[in-house]
Amino acid sequence: MKITRKDFLRLSGLGLLALAGRKAVRALSGWSFAQTSASAAKPIRWGMAFDLGKCRHKDGCNRCIQACHSTHNVPQFADRAHEIKWIWKEPFQNVFPAAQTDYTRDFYGSLPVLLACNHCDDPPCQDVCPVDATWRRDDGVVTIDFHRCIGCRYCMAACPYGSRSFNWQDPRPAIATVNPDFPTRTKGVVEKCNFCEERLAKGQGPACAESCEEKAIVFGDLEQPDSELRQLLRSRFAVQRKPELGTGPSVYYIV
């Protein structure tokens, strides 16, 4: 059979059209599948609220900090330059410098405020990590793979909240009693609050929230309208740290 030039062009055009059609059908069916599966599995976004008023009830209480540190083998270095922080306190005026006036400063300025990683919705620490050692999980927890971290500290520079600490030396000698069920870290990796993801995996809440007798720390799913956390955020006025940066913190402060 002889094919003329015109026939050849016509046939190849038809072939290409068929191919494109198949691709389009695939893409469309893939899209609809993704839609249904996403709606089938409800997304989770873990969040937390610190009720500062309740937290102030007991002067000098550090139960949550101790609970976190003993759970996660957080070392205690005397030298502040080597300090490792997961959850800690800073004076109000340093945490919310814009949220005070000459007259409120007297009272509020020096009050302690709890700080930890905000588990940002769009975390800048994740964007800068050159080796994918830190990332936001599907449930909103921003986590670190200590195995993979090369200690470049880009993430520390990127985090606008100072949530991350670097191990300048072997942390083991500075841990009073080691909890065998959580790894210690090693010299040269970065660490921070992990929202107790190892406890979440067992269906438990974070150690800090559990330890607080005043119930000043409320943990829950921000995606679930009737979670305790969402109810609290509906009924009380709450702020985030530096919301103007667009990082979308999952940690709220009831002031």
Binding site: N73, F146, D170, V178, N179, P180, P183, T184, R185, T186
Partner: peptide, 11 residues
């Protein structure tokens, strides 16, 4: 192996 620099074996 460097596993035990972080994973605990002291206990």
């Amino acid at each position: 192996p460097n596993c035990w620099n972080c994973h605990n074996d002291s206990h």
